[in-house]
Amino acid sequence: MMVSELMKVEDDKARASLPEAIVRYIESVRSCEHGESYLIAVLHKVQEHFGYLDMRQMSAVSQLMQIPSAKVTGVASFYHFFTFVPRGKHKLAICLGTACFVKGAGQVLDKIKELLRVDVGHTTKDQLFSLDVARCVGACALAPVLIVDEKVYANVKPDDVARILEEYGFAAKK
């Protein structure tokens, strides 16, 4: 096979692993000046679509943007916003900004870890919850703040955690 044919095979494979809208976006930015600078924007779109980044999608981005996959992985792993672990059905984020911390968010986090037996950045075995630490969400007056999916719970105390999780299908093991 010619190099150009090989490229086409690889390109087609890459196209197949990404949604069409993202493929189109990559093609549109590649023609811009400094096209490679849109790598982070592309990764945002991929994560928004899949909920996380895996090797297959990152290789596809690397192929379509013609950026070495070492760099794609390097950039993706550098920034906190990107995750390589599939997220749970519900995404928990406990804010550990200074205001939340001063008002006891650490104890709330401990309680969540204890109840769900899951560490920060991971997903429960039943895939129901994933746990993250949010940086300040700017709702400092409501501290401590727990965010479940899009909903914000204000002034959360460790004793409230079980009740909040139950709203999302958590059943405490007796």
Binding site: H34, E36, S37, Y38, L39, I40, A41, L43, H44, I67, K71, G74, V75, F78, Y79, H80, F81, F82, R135
Partner: peptide
Amino acid sequence: IRLGAGAFVCGEETALIHSIEGERG
């Protein structure tokens, strides 16, 4: 508009510039 991706060090000017360029910040 360029979105950050959660790196505190990008508050530093040269790191921020690298991030806009699509690099590690």
